[in-house]
Structure formats: C-alpha cells, structure tokens
C-alpha cells in the first residue's frame, strides 16, 4: 500500500504531453493533429489528478472536469472545421489551408 511519488505521476503526464506535442508538430493530416491535441489535453488533466492525489483534495478532479468539458467542445468545433476543409479543398493536408484570403 505504498503511495506513488508525485514526481512519477508528473513524469507520466509530461511524457504523454510530449508525445502529443510531437504529433501536433510532425503530422500533417488534420485528423492526426486533432487526435494529438486530445492526447495533450488528457495529459494536462492527468497532471491535475496527480496534484489532487498528492494533497488529497478534490480540486484537482474538478479542474479535470473543466478540462474534459473544454476538450469536448474543442473537438466538436475542430471536427466541423475538418468537414469544411475537406469540402473546400478535397484533402486533409493542413498545409493546403495555410494561406488566408481576405
């Protein structure tokens, strides 16, 4: 029944966040970019949970609920943008949509 050190939980959160960041930077398919964003948001929520576990307070879990709400709203808008992108350009490559037409 040993307790898990806080550093190990934060290391796991950092590794997951870094994996998501690498995905956002490297991948050019917008579906994979959104997927990596979800991984990053999940990792930040994990850091909140680890902090809440360290001090045995429910505040970390409540902040995770807010992160969860934000992730759900973000992914719905993002996937609607994916549909528009595919409708306009017939591709999912985000480099195609790198120019603004004002």
């Amino acid at each position: 029944m040993a307790s898990i050190p806080m550093e190990q939980g934060l290391v796991l959160a950092a590794v997951l966040f870094t994996l998501g960041l690498i995905g956002v930077l490297v991948r050019r398919n917008i579906i994979f970019v959104l997927l990596s964003l979800e991984v990053m948001l999940n990792a930040s929520g994990l850091a909140f949970i680890v902090a809440g576990y360290r001090w045995s307070q429910p505040d970390g879990q409540i902040l995770f609920l807010f992160v969860l709400t934000m992730a759900a709203a973000e992914v719905s808008v993002g996937l609607a943008l994916v549909l528009q992108l595919h409708r306009l350009f017939k591709t999912l490559d985000i480099d195609v949509a790198s120019r603004m037409r004002g």
Partner: peptide, 14 residues
C-alpha cells in the same frame, strides 16, 4: 457557456 458555444459553433461550421 463553453458547451453552448461549442454546440452553436459546430452547427454553424458543419
């Protein structure tokens, strides 16, 4: 409010 904005935004964009 964030969820409502997400709902309206997704409806408008999609």
């Amino acid at each position: 409010m964030v969820l409502l904005a997400g709902l309206i935004g997704a409806y408008h964009l999609g």
